[in-house]
Design a protein around this nucleic acid. Sequence first.
DNA 1: CTTGCGTCTTGGTCCAACAAATGATGGAAT
DNA 2: ATTCCATCATTTGTTGGACCAAGACGCAAG
Lengths: 249, 249
Amino acid sequence: MTDDSILLASMAVDSEQDPTRVSAVDRLVDQIREFVRSRDLVIGDALPTERELGELFQTGRNTVREALQVLKAYGIVEVRPKIGAVLSDRHEDAVRKLFAFQNDISPASFLDVQGYRRIIEVGICDHIILHATADDLNNLDAVNARILDEQSVDTAAQCDFAFHEALVSLAGNRTLLTNYRLLQPVITQIMRVGKAKRPVQIDTHQTHSEIINALKARDRVAYAYLISRHLEYGLQFVGSANTRASRSG
Amino acid sequence: MTDDSILLASMAVDSEQDPTRVSAVDRLVDQIREFVRSRDLVIGDALPTERELGELFQTGRNTVREALQVLKAYGIVEVRPKIGAVLSDRHEDAVRKLFAFQNDISPASFLDVQGYRRIIEVGICDHIILHATADDLNNLDAVNARILDEQSVDTAAQCDFAFHEALVSLAGNRTLLTNYRLLQPVITQIMRVGKAKRPVQIDTHQTHSEIINALKARDRVAYAYLISRHLEYGLQFVGSANTRASRSG
DNA sequence: CTTGCGTCTTGGTCCAACAAATGATGGAAT
DNA sequence: ATTCCATCATTTGTTGGACCAAGACGCAAG
């Protein structure tokens, strides 16, 4: 962790162009981040007040506020009246939100997302089969079981996603899991659309079970086949639902 | 596109909690976005001046500025002195930057990222072998050739990434490519570290050539082996470089 | 038509002020 | 002594205004 952080800190993340002409706001954002890092502040800790930050970094309160807005948009801090700015763990949410934002401009087609999922969920097959413990697979069963209890389309979709998320997590790769979670809004939306047609909790649970059984049997071919079929199965509903949505909306 | 946008528009992206107590800044962010949408403004178009926006939405200029900071953080607008706020297409950059932010806080180990790349670049094997045209592979050759001309570690790393990016793009999946590009800062940093030891352009070019040849021969096994070896090869340098960096930094 | 200059606009920053909200404080009642 | 409540003080939320510097714009001179 320490070595990586040192290396990563050297990365040109900021990508500011002119060291001479950086705005006070951007500078303040970096300064506050550095302040947090140097003080080893953790989630929940409060930053100094806006006026104190202004005095600390020799800048006006408006500038401080603009910097805090940026930090807030990044999900780094959460500023509450009277309390001040407290360190937040909403960063991943902010990334997700911002990532989903682009769909507002140029939406990735659902088919594309399902194709992505197929590449991922098939691609992790080897690692899971080689490294997944019995506990891991039993945990998958437990996650899968929850879908039967759900009534609404929303919660069922969440459970469905939770299963696939747990599956991906078995790949043991944090980067992959983070990227997969990035698509959570889109994926759960696909699931909602798929389940909106009629309650398919039983079917989903059944298919998931088959997938788990394939993993327990360490059967790569069966797993890859079941996953592919499972993802394609959901797609057919998206197509028809699309038509419906475009008419109703 | 139209159907998807309708479906995606129904996704709860905003996730604001209290409709009664939205801050003026958040409201302004939405209002400006709505303004852009209703006017059908496109990339490059300029927004009204800060003062005009303030008058238009009955709010103070400082509030407008805070809202613009948020929009800027989202990569939606780019505010240039004297020109004003113009619509920007830097959204993907903003996502990348925000994503890199998270690595700054809890850095993924390089090993993890290489593992991710292995899953991806091996996972797309089937699709490439089935769908890549001769032109596609020749283009890979062209991209690969450029690395020989590069002198500095930086530009060589960029060329290296360009090759792998082109490789991933052959999977024909936009979502996958977007996610892969998200890691560009981390990946190129890994490459820089790997190449910092000594110039390895020739080796890299050679290995890439072998990978391309495996694809041309439609040899899945050879491709998977070469990719895995290629990625692991880079890792061994990262380990030692890590130590060096932690000493020098 | 081009060029050069002056003006005017605009973003960048800061300050002062007030409103609203809420934690802190202290006193009163039991 | 404890608890409750009113009051206060502090802090954020928001606004308006002020000034500066830099770039855009227009006008005039060549």
